[in-house]
Deep mutational scan, measured.
Amino acid sequence: MGKSNSKLKPEVVEELTRKTYFTEKEVQQWYKGFIKDCPSGQLDAAGFQKIYKQFFPFGDPTKFATFVFNVFDENKDGRIEFSEFIQALSVTSRGTLDEKLRWAFKLYDLDNDGYITRNEMLDIVDAIYQMVGNTVELPEEENTPEKRVDRIFAMMDKNADGKLTLQEFQEGSKADPSIVQALSLYDGLV
């Protein structure tokens, strides 16, 4: 993909415009910024974590950033290329609610087996709590990752089998306004 070129080839721009919710001009602008920050044309896990640390200076986002990195890194080569970056950004910032929920499901399904187990969710929720640090005051019933996961599973795990399917996750998330709101945070920002 033209590693350190400051412009993408027209056919690449066209393809990314088809695969995302961005215009050709927006794709070019994002590429310019991506190459400025990642001259090699790729972003590794350490660089990704560094970006998260800028956004969450009062907590430790390392663990959460690693989980997000793994979802962005579609081809699992340990690096995020621009096409992976822009497609994930498109879903998280401008995707439909169902697209965002499928993306979030992939984030929580750490072993990619098609289910979110209690332990997988606990890993992610714990990482989120570490990331936000003491900057967020949580209600008593959610002031630990374990309590939050218990509440989520009580609401979403309809067949009580200890794991969530994509359908259970989507339906449960849509029924909880706070989850829908959290997924909409990026709307309109890009």
Rank of each mutant, 00 (worst) to 15 (best):
F85V: 13
V13Y: 06
S83E: 04
E140I: 06
E142T: 00
P61F: 14
T66W: 08
E99N: 12
E99D: 06
F85H: 10
E26V: 15
P139L: 08
I35D: 09
L101G: 06
N143G: 07
A160G: 05
S83F: 08
K36I: 14
D44Y: 07
E81I: 12
R151N: 02
A182H: 14
Q181L: 05
R79Q: 15
Q29H: 07
V125E: 05
A127V: 06
L101S: 03
Q87L: 06
E142Q: 14
K25E: 10
P61H: 08
T144Y: 01
R151F: 05
K19C: 10
V27D: 15
N112E: 03
G47C: 06
F85R: 00
R148S: 02
K158R: 11
K53M: 13
V180F: 07
L138V: 08
I51R: 05
D77F: 15
Q42M: 12
E99F: 10
F34N: 02
T135I: 08
S83A: 04
Y52C: 05
G133I: 05
A127M: 03
E81H: 08
R148V: 15
T96F: 05
T62H: 14
Y186G: 03
V27Q: 08
Q42T: 14
K100C: 01
K147A: 02
D126G: 03
E171F: 00
R151Q: 09
P145Y: 03
E141V: 00
E137G: 09
Q181V: 04
K25R: 11
T117A: 07
L164M: 08
G95C: 04
E99M: 01
E84C: 10
E15P: 15
E140Y: 02
E168A: 08
Q29I: 02
D44K: 04
K76V: 12
K76G: 01
Q170Y: 05
W30L: 07
A127H: 00
V12Y: 13
F67R: 13
V27E: 01
F55M: 04
Y31H: 14
K25G: 11
E24D: 07
V136H: 06
F48M: 10
A104R: 04
S173W: 02
E142G: 08
N143P: 05
E81A: 13
V136G: 08
A160E: 09
P177R: 02
Q130N: 05
T66P: 09
G41R: 08
F82T: 04
D113V: 11
W103S: 03
F169R: 03
G95L: 02
N143Q: 11
P57E: 00
E146P: 04
N119T: 07
K19S: 02
R18L: 12
A46N: 02
L16I: 11
I179S: 13
I35S: 09
V27F: 15
N112D: 07
I128V: 05
A46L: 04
E146N: 07
T17C: 01
K174M: 11
L164A: 14
D60A: 07
Q42L: 07
